[in-house]
Nucleic acid binder design. Structure first.
Lengths: 352, 352
DNA sequence: AACTATTGATAAATCGATTTTTCAGTGCTG
DNA sequence: CAGCACTGAAAAATCGATTTATCAATAGTT
């Protein structure tokens, strides 16, 4: 049965020889083309079985126009959000007989462009791009310029060239505003990264519009930094050092939530007694720590499914104007959100 | 300059025609083979430049015996550990001109085997496998049977067929024991998943040996479950419900740390006043929550680097007995570890 | 000057499939 | 029975590179 290490795998010609037919016939049998005599098909199946033949996807793809490879470019792999996104995309690609090749841009547009170039070299059938910046960044530009088929997700709203799928940031932020204003907060700090991004602006404006609609006198301070997290940390630290005392913080990204928490910790402030906190992106740990952290859950599975659905429709030749899907989020209110504290913060105030 | 969408990319023959040489000459120029007249090389470079030619890695690999693809199979992508691992592996593969194709086994040996089969179809040059179980599971078996070249990482100790790279679980666990015993703990609960794995046993025995060496009268309770996290949760809950009151918990995996935290929370116990906690695997949130959570940091970058180093040595034909590397971990003692509490736990006792 | 080495380049084979073209054999029609 | 459409399969072209074999032109040797 299983003899020693088999180092050279059988090719389609080996199968053909074994079955006494031509390679073309083997190919037909493997693809279920009906114009093959049942007797020959049977012999091919037997040869395949005996030799343990499996088609080489590389060779197989070479002849096709569109290769059965999907590229996925994400800013990073370390977070639950993108990790889960890769898992979903992988499964969806596989379901259709495609292979997913994922790459991380490391939050660099340089690298994003380089990876796109490489994906193009591979002549992938399509690309799922979660751009470092937004739909108007270099990634989309490059895809457009080279006529690639692709879908953009996450940090996008809508695009004139590509289909987009993202969380419904506007509604989600509005719900956060409703929650905070409803609990009596009238001074909120909003923090986030990627100030130029359309998605960030949507999250910010969704929050601002709803908050001001509920109470025009609400005070909303905003700290946005372009990309790196350390400048954001510095700005927040500086903000608190100036004596600013919002009663709640709304973070537009996971990184911001972590920075906010660590700055609270520096000052000895506790949630929600001293300050409330809610942020975009849920994570497993948020429901087991003290306090549990309120978060906007993005529907990763749905975003992935919609993105792949659109992508394969385009791959299959569907034309028409690009679509822009928004998937509904869920706000999980947890212990980190409470009513504004009346007294002064428990921790020291001006400490640096 | 940048004319409209270019849908058909130039092949090596287009370059050859443009430069007035043969395709073979273009190939030589692209690979820096010196037996080309400088004048011709120049013309090839110009044609490459003008046409924007880039070699098709698919076609290029077809002719080679070993393809410039590395497969990575990891249990999941959602955690910081494996997410970071993928990032490192990706970079290291790229550095050598290889493409990394990562896939997640979803903690299933079935899927692990299926993915390995697919990697074989792709005729990858090598595989980095973080097995679902351990070095004696189906994954290694399958790699051996098909004569694949590969390295195993993470949940392994050593193997007679493949190189292995993993965290030095024994030493790390011993250090945890030293820390807990040193602080006065004499009743510790150890929790984890994958009871059959060699790596789990190493973590457990490393802890037990050191703890018993420091104080033979120490009491060590152990709760291990095979794979799923929910049975583990149930067992832990049952354990506490029976009235067991260890003064510290040591988790052998991140999942266990999360489960422990959530069970503490159920009972209203706080770290470290009511119970101490330390676990394998660090995460970003652990240093910003209350309390900060003590953790064993695994040297992801080093594991990745060593694994890829070994892998490429094997790909390049290096023979010799398989090596088993252990990379030193770092214990970060944080607020979740304190001295054992003298009085009864603050929270209710028997609540279910 | 004739013959061999060397150099640089081209033509052809190859990798492993798919797709198109060709072809032999059948069955049907008029 | 000649002519034609149809069926099933083999042969050949193709995808885009690498690698080997071959060949022409030049350089070197006696």
């Amino acid at each position: 049965m299983s003899s020693g290490a088999v180092h050279k795998r059988p090719s389609i010609h080996d199968v053909a020889n074994h079955a006494g037919v031509s390679a073309a016939t083997v190919s037909k049998v493997m693809h279920g083309v009906p114009t093959v005599k049942p007797e020959n098909a049977q012999r091919v199946f037997e040869a395949v079985e005996r030799l343990g033949y499996r088609a080489d996807p590389l060779a197989s793809d070479l002849r096709r126009a569109k290769r059965r490879i999907i590229g996925a470019i994400l800013p990073e792999f370390e977070s639950e959000f993108f990790g889960s996104m890769v898992t979903h995309l992988e499964r969806l690609a596989e379901l259709r007989g495609y292979t997913l090749v994922a790459a991380s841009s490391g939050e660099s547009e340089e690298r994003e462009a380089e990876i796109l170039r490489r994906m193009q070299d591979w002549r992938v059938a399509g690309v799922v791009l979660a751009p470092v910046r937004d739909e108007h960044g270099r990634g989309g530009e490059s895809m457009r310029a080279h006529g690639m088929t692709g879908v953009m997700i996450d940090r996008v709203l809508s695009d004139k060239s590509f289909d987009t799928v993202s969380a419904d940031s506007l509604s989600a932020s509005a719900e956060v505003a409703r929650e905070l204003i409803g609990r009596g907060h009238r001074h909120v700090l909003v923090v986030g990264l990627g100030e130029q991004g359309a998605c960030v602006r949507a999250r910010l404006e969704g929050f601002r519009k709803m908050a001001e609609a509920l109470d025009p006198k609400v005070r909303i301070d905003v700290i946005l930094c372009e990309s790196d997290v350390e400048p954001l940390r510095a700005s927040i630290r500086d903000y608190f050092s100036r004596g600013e005392r919002p009663t709640a913080v709304f973070s537009l990204f996971l990184k911001g939530t972590l920075v906010a928490l660590s700055e609270f910790r520096r000052r000895g402030w506790h949630c929600p007694d001293d300050i409330s906190l809610v942020g975009f992106d849920d994570a497993e740990w948020m429901s087991v720590t003290w306090p549990t952290i309120a978060a906007v859950v993005q529907p990763v599975g749905q975003i992935a499914a919609q993105a792949m659905d659109m992508l394969f429709r385009r791959i299959d030749g569907e034309s028409g104007p690009p679509t822009a899907r928004l998937e509904r989020c869920q706000l999980l209110v947890r212990e980190s959100v409470g009513a504004p504290s009346s007294g002064p913060h428990s921790g020291g105030g001006t400490g640096q």
